[in-house]
């Protein structure tokens, strides 16, 4: 697990405190009962604060799993560093 993934796990733990760290990489709206649209917006805000990037709220529907969010954050961070 790389640094971005570790930090992203931390963000998930903040929003879903009942979720165990090992469950998080496989987490999605399907598997986490508490993950509703409000939780998505909260998660996005926490991720934005953690990584200093701005996620596009218009793509809200796409942010439905850890893996998708991870891919998006990696993309944004690499753009910021470029």
């Amino acid at each position: 697990m790389d640094d971005i993934a570790k930090r992203l796990v931390g963000c998930f733990q903040t929003v879903f405190p009942d979720l165990e760290a090992k469950q998080i990489p496989a987490a999605s709206q399907e598997t986490v009962a508490a993950w509703d649209s409000v939780a998505t917006v909260t998660l996005i805000t926490v991720i934005e604060d953690e990584f200093g990037v701005a996620l596009d709220l218009e793509r809200l529907q796409e942010f439905d799993s850890f893996s998708r969010l991870y891919g998006h954050v990696v993309e944004l961070v690499s753009q910021t560093n470029a």
Binding site: T14, P17, D49
Partner: peptide
Amino acid sequence: VKIAEALKIIRD
């Protein structure tokens, strides 16, 4: 207070 911090305060 940021959102992550607020969530921690609530949790604690």
